[in-house]
Design a protein around this nucleic acid. Structure first.
Lengths: 219, 219
DNA sequence: AAATATTTTTAGGTTTGTCTAAATTTTATT
DNA sequence: AATAAAATTTAGACAAACCTAAAAATATTT
């Protein structure tokens, strides 16, 4: 089944909101998509008829099995293109998202399969987000917020949840990027900020606010 | 100025028809785009208001300066993506076009500039069609139909005007592709078919019908 | 040059996706 | 439990892009 660009955007929007909320509601999705509640209701009736969501009027909605599969396909295309733009075309981190947002709607299975292969079947996109495989399986990873990370264990930065330009600027300043190795030296009780060590003689302190947005994993 | 996918398709359609007809008319464009005459009239009024075409009701139309510039931008995107799909993703010749038709509407100048660069600034797409540069300049090439080619001079295949699957099949059979070197041995008066030599001991005869669609150039 | 055929445009309708404003339902407050 | 507030849906409109069928303009025949 083929979906319009609008339908795909709604499906993707629901998918993303479901990462944080079991059930999604109308206003939330309207905000996510920069549209209005009435438009969301209209589209949800349509997605409901197409049997992609579980929708109870006034009660919210969520993707069903079929809907999730479709969402993962869109996410896969988006993240593979992000990887391409970043790794092959060397585009800046913060410009990659908007363009992938357009490319993701080109939905040839052969294209995506070959792209995946060409890129070397990457498991994570440049933001550290996992790329679903062609069957919709997400690679697993036990990641932890830097604000909750154990002390004195060498960790690897694997993703950053806030992907605004402001955050990018911040990270550039601290010389932190995906795959940067670092170690938490201590945590200050006063405001929860953490002192970290990246490389041999590079120690710095970052606020809890920032640390909450940086995810790391251990090997 | 930003154009919708539909508008871009109409602009591109007019551009292609103008390669063979100075003035394009409603029915011709409707056929090219698989739409109806009434739809073409609607869109042409719109393109006329946007000052992209010269349009005289009942008299046909053509792209003006501005319209041509826009068309060349679309053609550039299309052919760069075709090159990418063919050279990097190793897709079959006949599948490349349909996908490039979708990718071409993603219109970030930075994306296309970087893609061009990444591909090594190619001058011709996999079908041998010229790729406009970022300023809209087309590379020049003095090409000749194989049916009109001089005898016994080594030529290089540079483009094929009929890009159907049927033609691709034909060319595979004859082992002819873009950049194949060949020499016309003789031409038969009876039906205009030509005997050609590709490689050392590979001689074959192809019909005028096919030869008319193969373009070669000499160095 | 009149009649016929072809082409193009206009008129009016459909679908998709959006919106505002009013009505309805659910949730929270007193 | 009644009322106020918030969220959601419905009703009705609008724009883009398409269509069919009828009308108008142009081209071709006789």
């Amino acid at each position: 089944m083929k979906f319009s660009i609008s339908e795909e955007n709604y499906i993707k929007g629901i998918y993303h909101l479901q990462q944080h909320n079991e059930i999604v509601n109308t206003n939330l999705l309207a905000a996510e998509l920069n549209s209005k509640a009435a438009s969301v209701t209209d589209m949800l009736k349509k997605l409901n008829e197409k049997k992609i969501v579980q929708y109870q009027p006034y009660r919210g909605f969520k993707l069903n099995e079929k809907g999730s599969r479709i969402a993962l396909g869109i996410v896969r295309r988006h993240r593979l293109w992000e990887y391409f733009l970043s790794e092959k075309l060397e585009m800046e981190w913060d410009k990659v998202h908007a363009i992938a947002e357009e490319l993701e709607h080109v939905s040839s299975d052969e294209l995506i399969g070959r792209l995946d292969n060409y890129l070397g079947n990457p498991k994570f996109d440049p933001h550290g987000d996992p790329i679903p495989d062609s069957k919709g399986n997400l690679p697993l990873m036990n990641k932890v917020r830097l604000s909750d990370a154990p002390l004195k264990k060498t960790a690897t930065v694997c993703s950053v949840s806030d992907q605004t330009t402001a955050m990018l600027e911040m990270l550039k300043h601290y010389k932190i990027g995906i795959n940067t190795k670092l170690k938490v030296i201590r945590q200050f009780d006063f405001d929860g900020s953490v002192e970290i060590k990246t490389g041999q003689n590079n120690t710095c302190t970052i606020s809890k606010e920032v640390a909450k947005n940086i995810f790391v994993h251990y090997e």
